[in-house]
């Protein structure tokens, strides 16, 4: 994968401004770029949502199919999260199988959804050990201007909120599809992810692409609506433990705002 080239002068400016508590695009430290969520764009999917944070754009489609459960959880449904860094999204994305960045993105979003227990996996069982519902969450990055973690996590939970299942009955380990209106999935929790950047001694949220490429370190925290931590992923760089605890405080403050945007 080729590299995003950020001019040295921009990089220095970002670090210098951060030291004074300011941002290159005029934002406050704890301010997101404008967030837009559109739901139900893809009628063929069981649920979908497109999220833009600034000019970063991520589309997520949810499909529910039947399949086999994992051997260690025979009576629970399966969640599969996949991410595609589609080549149309950036000059640095190349066609081909998912690279480490795409895999990491999918796995961090997966952890947030899974550990928050937002889906009731036991409700997705059809025939224990043989057949369960498999919820596929496919993340499609359409325009890459930084902070894919937060955009993808937000789009994923928004798409799950939009997901509807056709009415059905389970009889003798088989699904019987019935007539009628589809009903939404029963979500238990609403995890959102907050990415915090460290630069020039300051911490700020939602780094844009040029900020992401310039900062000293990145940390992504996923929180549910009760402010419980469900996933953390440190990116490049390093943090002191004080900075980590401060990041958790920032995430707590900002997560409500992100969750508001889901309403």
């Amino acid at each position: 994968m080729s590299i995003n080239v950020i001019p040295q002068i921009t990089r220095e400016r970002i670090l210098e401004l951060a030291g004074k508590g300011r941002r290159i695009d005029g934002r406050f430290l704890y301010q997101y770029r404008p967030i837009r969520i559109e739901r139900g764009l893809i009628k063929k999917a069981d649920g979908s949502a497109q999220v833009s944070i600034g000019s970063t754009k991520v589309l997520v489609g949810v499909k529910i199919e039947t399949g086999e459960p994992f051997p260690d959880t025979p009576d629970q449904g399966v969640l599969m999260v996949n991410a595609e860094l589609v080549p149309l999204a950036s000059p640095v994305f190349e066609p081909g199988p998912p690279n480490e960045d795409a895999l990491e993105l999918a796995r961090v979003v997966d952890r947030g959804l899974r550990e928050s227990k937002c889906l009731r996996f036991e409700d997705l069982c059809i025939n224990p050990g043989r057949k369960v519902f498999v919820v596929f969450v496919d993340i499609y990055v359409l325009d890459y201007d930084g902070n894919l973690f937060d955009a993808s996590a937000l789009a994923s939970i928004a798409a799950l909120m939009d997901t509807k299942m056709k009415p059905h009955r389970i009889e003798a380990g088989e699904v019987l599809w019935l007539e009628g209106e589809p009903s939404p999935l029963n979500l238990q929790h609403y995890p959102v992810s907050i990415t915090i950047a460290k630069a020039g001694g300051a911490l700020f949220v939602d780094p844009s692409l040029e900020e992401e490429q310039s900062v000293d370190a990145l940390l992504t925290i996923t929180m549910d609506e009760q402010n419980r931590l469900c996933a953390i992923q440190k990116g490049p760089g390093s943090f002191t433990s004080e900075e980590v605890f401060k990041s958790v405080q920032i995430a707590k403050e900002v997560s409500n705002y992100l969750r508001e945007s889901l309403k």
């Binding site: 550990e115 402010n227 469900c230 953390i232 992923q233 440190k234 390093s238 943090f239 433990s241 980590v244």
Partner: peptide, 18 residues
């Protein structure tokens, strides 16, 4: 430096537990 260079969390923790 005493800095943290790897930090991942997989699972539910309250802030105090964290």
């Amino acid at each position: 430096t005493g800095e943290i260079t790897l930090l991942q969390l997989n699972g539910l923790l309250t802030e105090d537990e964290f």
